[in-house]
Design a protein around this nucleic acid. Sequence first.
DNA 1: TCTGGGGTCCTAGGACCC
DNA 2: TCTGGGGTCCTAGGACCC
Length: 422
Amino acid sequence: MEQFALVDCNNFYASCERVFNPSLREKPIVILSNNDGCVVARSNEAKALGVKMGVPFFKITSLVEQHKIHVISSNYALYGDMSARVMKVIGEFAPAQEVYSIDESFLHLTGMRDLAGIGSQIRTRVKDWLGLPVCVGIAPTKTLAKLCNATAKSYSKLEGVLDYNSLSDERKARLLQSFEVGAVWGIGRRLTDKLKMLGITTAYALRESDPEEMSKRFSVVMKRTITELRGISCIDMENIDEARKQILSSRSFGRAVVDLHELEEAVTMYTSRAAEKLRGDGSLANEINVYVRTSPYLQDAYAESATVKFPHPSDDTMFLIKYAVEALRSIYKPGLVYQKAGVTLLNLVPNEGQQLSLFHSQANDAKSKRMMQALDQTNQKYGRGSLFIAGEGINKSWQIRAEYKTPAYTTSWDELAIVHAR
DNA sequence: TCTGGGGTCCTAGGACCC
DNA sequence: TCTGGGGTCCTAGGACCC
């Protein structure tokens, strides 16, 4: 039988902030999304006060004042760096690891012994070495490992680890009964509603439903989920070395944007960022999609996107920008108040042995390669944004707000944590 | 008389995840 | 007044082929 562990950091962003600011321990904390728009992470204390995930910040301002909730703008440089460290430590425990998100990773434990013991060791080591709390769920399928992880988080008696294999059939059934069907991995809001109409409201009821019939009624994805709930693995470990299939860079603006010129600056910057990621993956893009939108909450909301295909695949920022701006101009409508724009690189291919088009000169290609290397190296060494494309604009007054940001303790020389001698 | 029967590839859109 | 950003996978339907 296969065995998987899901290791998940508890309240990851909030926990990262606490590592560098211990006075935040035991205090309610919320972390805000880019632009300080809504809540993307909460400490347990904030959850207990009723702050919901994803709630717009302006809706909880009185709650924040009333309970002295600490408000922090998200600091992705810090979280990304801490994440890399955590994943490295966790990865030492198993022959195969799949980093599933910034704060979660699956381990392949098939054939290993004392799985719960391994879970405890992981927990202890991450706490000791990095100061971050994690929980571990262990089961013969990823879907069950997810549920076990959630249970390990909510019952302190379990000390952060739950091994599904150690439960009796009756306990397994009770565990599944304790979860609403929407809590199951792969069952979102739409499916939850549809399942409810069939009288399926818990993870247990879903497990007991007929996979074939459900496959016809819904899709093969549903069938897989049911099979996984029955303890038969059908969602394998993914190869994490595979390059991404698309790269998206988008942001809401810090203020209303009407001007085409400002949109061009934004799109230029997003394209630069996406191109950096593209080169980091060692990929080339064949197409670019650009979208703009007004606030979707307006009555006459406008949202449009355009895709442009390149004459040949490329990772050259200047080249990509040219097409991005072309796409933008085709969808720009004057007089609207834009709130967000985004750029997606599509149809990505590995940057090896690419056939150059007939009229594409070798010399130009080498030159652009050196230029892009210089750009990436400078930005890596001196911090993002040290060197940028002129079209991004200097002021960037449309950029996001981040009023409550903490320093980039681990990734920027200017902002290193200071240790005070006693 | 009664509209072939497969196949493949591509795309848009839906649903999900964190 | 204020509502995130970055991904994946699946399906249905159209275009095209023999």
